[in-house]
Deep mutational scan, measured.
Amino acid sequence: MKVIFLKDVKGKGKKGEIKNVADGYARNFLFKQGLAIEATPANLKELE
C-alpha cells in the first residue's frame, strides 16, 4: 500500500515521502498513530 508519511518514522520514511509499505503495517500502526495517510489521488493532490 502506498502511504504519505506525515512524520519521520525511523527506518521507514521521512515526512512528505511517498512509499510502499505492508498493508497491515500501514493500517495497524502508521494510520492509528497518525504517522501516515493513504496515498489516494485526493491526498496526493493536497500534498502538492
Rank of each mutant, 00 (worst) to 15 (best):
K10N: 10
A42E: 14
A36D: 00
M1G: 03
K2F: 14
A26D: 06
G11W: 08
K45Y: 11
V9L: 06
K7T: 11
P41W: 12
K32N: 07
E38A: 11
K7D: 06
L6F: 03
G16H: 07
V3S: 00
L6G: 01
R27K: 12
P41V: 13
D8F: 08
I37P: 00
A39D: 02
K19R: 12
V3T: 01
L30R: 01
K12I: 15
N20R: 14
L35Y: 09
E38N: 03
G11D: 08
G34S: 06
E17H: 04
K14R: 13
N28Q: 11
V21A: 03
F5Q: 00
K15R: 12
F31E: 02
N28E: 13
P41F: 11
K32S: 10
K12L: 15
G34D: 05
L35I: 07
K15V: 09
L35R: 03
D8H: 08
M1V: 13
I18N: 01
E17R: 02
L30F: 04
V9K: 02
N43F: 09
E38W: 07
E48W: 11
L35D: 03
G13D: 02
N20E: 15
A39P: 02
L47D: 06
G24E: 15
V21Y: 05
A39K: 02
G34R: 08
F5A: 01
K7L: 09
Q33D: 07
Y25P: 05
G24P: 11
K14L: 12
L6K: 03
K45I: 12
K2G: 05
F5R: 00
G13S: 03
A22R: 12
N43T: 10
E38R: 09
L6W: 02
F31T: 04
A39V: 08
R27Y: 11
K10M: 11
A36E: 00
R27W: 10
L35F: 11
L30S: 00
N20D: 13
N43I: 13
F29V: 14
I37W: 06
V9F: 04
K12E: 11
T40Y: 05
K15D: 01
R27H: 08
T40Q: 04
E38V: 07
N43V: 12
L47I: 11
K2T: 14
K12W: 15
V3I: 09
G24H: 14
E48I: 14
V21F: 07
E48L: 14
G11Q: 04
G34W: 06
V9M: 04
N28K: 11
V9S: 02
L44N: 05
L6V: 09
K45A: 14
E46T: 13
K19N: 04
D8M: 04
V3E: 01
Q33I: 08
E46S: 13
I37R: 07
K2W: 15
L44E: 05
D23M: 14
I18L: 07
A39W: 13
L6Y: 02
A22F: 10
A26P: 01
R27D: 03
F29E: 09
N28T: 08
E38I: 08
E38S: 07
E17K: 03
L30P: 01
A22I: 09
K15N: 04
E46F: 14
K12D: 07
L35K: 04
D23N: 11
K14T: 08
G24D: 15
K45Q: 12
P41S: 10
V21R: 00
L44V: 10
K45H: 10
K14I: 09
K32I: 13
G16E: 01
I37Y: 05
K19I: 09
G11L: 04
K12S: 14
F31I: 13
K19S: 07
G16L: 04
L44Y: 06
A42G: 11
L30I: 01
I4L: 11
Y25A: 06
A22N: 14
D8R: 06
G24Q: 12
Y25I: 07
K14D: 05
A22Q: 11
I37F: 03
V3Y: 01
R27T: 08
K7G: 05
L35E: 03
V21P: 00
K2V: 13
K7N: 06
I37Q: 05
I4Q: 03
I37D: 02
N28H: 12
K7W: 09
E46K: 14
E17Y: 03
K7Y: 11
N20L: 15
K2R: 14
F5Y: 06
K10Q: 12
A39T: 03
I18V: 13
D23I: 15
A42V: 09
Q33G: 07
K45M: 12
L6P: 00
F5H: 00
G24I: 13
K45E: 11
V9T: 03
K10L: 13
E46Y: 13
M1K: 05
E38G: 03
E17N: 05
D8S: 09
K14M: 12
I37T: 06
N43G: 07
G16V: 01
T40W: 05
K2A: 11
A22D: 15
N43W: 06
G34Y: 08
G11I: 02
E48Y: 12
M1S: 05
N20S: 14
D23P: 15
A36T: 01
F29H: 10
P41Y: 11
K10E: 15
Q33F: 15
G13W: 14
F5T: 00
N43D: 06
A26L: 12
I4Y: 10
F5V: 00
G24F: 13
G11A: 05
G11N: 09
K32W: 07
A26N: 03
L35V: 05
K15P: 04
Y25V: 07
G11P: 04
P41Q: 11
F31W: 02
G16M: 05
F31G: 02
A22P: 14
D23H: 13
L44R: 07
G34T: 04
D23Y: 15
L47R: 09
T40S: 10
V21W: 02
K7I: 10
G34F: 08
N20I: 15
E38Q: 10
L47F: 13
A39Y: 13
T40M: 05
V9Y: 04
I18S: 03
K12M: 15
K32R: 11
L30E: 00
D8G: 06
V9E: 01
G16W: 10
L44F: 08
K7E: 09
N28W: 12
L47E: 06
V21Q: 02
G13Q: 03
L35M: 08
F31Q: 02
L44S: 06
A26E: 09
A42H: 12
A22H: 13
A39L: 08
L30W: 03
E46W: 15
K7A: 14
L47S: 08
